[in-house]
């Protein structure tokens, strides 16, 4: 699969600010800059959510299954 693109809406003021900032960086465009920032944010989130939550879920469901008589 090739890389896919979609559109998102962000306030014009923010775009203008990014435009200013992009000039001082090696990013080619606002799109590229925004993609990079979002990737960074999402990357961290994914790592955290996956680990913490699934263990919590597992404990919770274990307890429930025990109450329902499945695990003894």
């Amino acid at each position: 699969m090739s890389v896919e693109y979609g559109e998102i809406k962000i306030p014009i003021d923010l775009i203008k600010k990014i435009e200013e900032r992009v000039k001082e960086t090696e990013f080619e465009s606002v799109d590229e800059y925004a993609t990079f920032v979002l990737e960074e944010v999402v990357k961290d989130d994914d790592e955290e959510i996956e680990e913490v939550f699934s263990e919590e879920d597992e404990d919770k469901v274990k307890e429930r299954l025990r109450a329902l008589g499945y695990l003894d």
Partner: peptide
Amino acid sequence: KIGMFGDH
């Protein structure tokens, strides 16, 4: 639903 699991 509890995460990937299911509860009654």
